[in-house]
């Protein structure tokens, strides 16, 4: 049972690089990497909101629940 972050998929769809997205969202590239690699323990609403805004998507497009 886990939450999967599909950020890399959405970034590929939008054709945006990590550095560019990090700069637009206002987080460090290191923190974006933590998010992309699934190491993050939590995500702030403000970060999620900024990601959805920049990637023009819904939170459900970025996060996925897997019951395994």
């Amino acid at each position: 049972m886990e939450i999967i972050v599909n950020l890399d998929v959405m970034m590929a769809k939008r054709k945006i690089s990590s550095n560019e997205l990090a700069e637009r969202v206002g987080i460090t590239a290191a923190n974006l990497s933590i998010l992309k690699t699934g190491k993050a323990r939590a995500i702030r609403f403000s970060t999620l909101m900024a990601l959805c805004h920049e990637l023009n998507c819904q939170p459900g497009d970025l996060l996925e629940f897997r019951d395994e």
Partner: peptide, 8 residues
Amino acid sequence: KSELDLTV
């Protein structure tokens, strides 16, 4: 702290 460090 480790929890906070991994909060993005």
